[in-house]
Design a protein around this nucleic acid. Structure first.
Length: 283
DNA sequence: CTTGTACCCTGACCGC
DNA sequence: TGCGGTCAGGGTACAA
């Protein structure tokens, strides 16, 4: 999935145009787009006539807060999910789809003012879940803290990483420890903090916790300013690309000189995913 | 409890 | 041109 900065960019885009809109009808093009499986009819029926009161984000999850009772339509875009909003002048969304290359529409939400909210997802790893406010609150409580929150301290990161033996890179990807970090920003934060991604999470020193906390927040903030990292699949709403890919220092740079010490960046596989790091200055 | 692996799905790309 | 293998920014079920 796009990670925290990408999902927050999508949230801001959608909030600007969707808050206050009313869903008239929903069309799902694939049954497997519901995160819990099951029949689609109750899902689509329950969304008809609902107003989108607010767009929220928690970790990598989007939460459409629906009136009148605060039910939550949760959306996860995972690897290849994208949103777009077609104007009322293009009610089928045909022109917009052609323009931005949406060729795998999985869901369409018709709005009362004639606009159309489109969800496209080539691999269909993403999807939706409709739930009550209480169910969402319980689910959301299972996620770790928001790393960009004002009150997120190095001590909170240290507590999240705990005393485990798993590599710190893997621990950063665990949404229960800290929410919103994915493969790119885990690599980037560890690079900035000069910490070996293979180091057991429970063995970090106090100084390393402080460096990682600082690096994590800095890279997430900068990526958010750049509206995310568009390496291959991620796009913000209506096809807009992010710009932070130009500022990545380690991710995707295998063989290139480390910007700090010149040693070639190396790639290794952890938990089945690529990690990029400098073997010389990440101790 | 923690940790590791397989799997969901499709498309792009590379070497032969 | 075609084919097989590999990889992709995520999350979850399940086994050990």
């Amino acid at each position: 999935m796009p990670e925290l900065p990408e999902v927050e960019t999508i949230r801001r885009d959608l909030a600007a145009v969707l808050e206050g809109a009313t869903i008239v009808s929903v069309r799902l093009h694939h049954d497997d787009i519901l995160l819990d499986g099951g029949p689609t009819a109750p899902f689509t029926a329950a969304l008809a006539g609902r107003r989108i009161d607010a767009l929220e984000r928690r970790g990598k999850n989007l939460a459409f807060r629906l009136g009148p009772d605060g039910d939550v339509l949760q959306a996860q875009v995972r690897m290849t999910g994208r949103f777009a909003v077609a104007p009322a002048a293009d009610p089928s969304g045909k022109r917009l789809r052609a323009k931005i290359g949406f060729s795998h529409i999985a869901a369409e939400f018709e709005l009362a003012d004639g606009r159309l909210l489109l969800y496209d997802d080539v691999r269909r790893l993403g999807g939706f879940r409709l739930q009550s406010a209480a169910e969402w609150a319980a689910r959301e409580a299972g996620l770790g803290p928001e790393p960009l929150a004002d009150d997120y301290r190095a001590a909170d990161l240290a507590a999240g990483l705990g005393r485990g033996r798993a590599p710190v890179k893997n621990a950063l990807l665990d949404q229960r420890r800290v929410a919103g970090i994915g493969n790119i920003y885990a690599s980037e934060a560890l690079f900035r903090a000069r910490i070996d991604p293979r180091r057991p999470a429970g063995e970090l020193s106090g100084d390393q916790h402080r460096r990682l906390h600082r690096a994590l927040r800095a890279v997430l903030r900068e990526a958010l300013e750049g509206e995310g990292t568009s390496l291959r699949d991620y796009r913000a709403v209506n096809g807009r690309s992010g710009r932070f890919q130009e500022r990545l220092r380690a991710y995707g740079r295998e063989g290139e000189p480390c910007p700090r010490c010149g040693t070639p960046i190396e790639r290794l596989v952890q938990a089945g995913r690529s990690t990029f790091f400098c073997p010389a200055c990440q101790a």
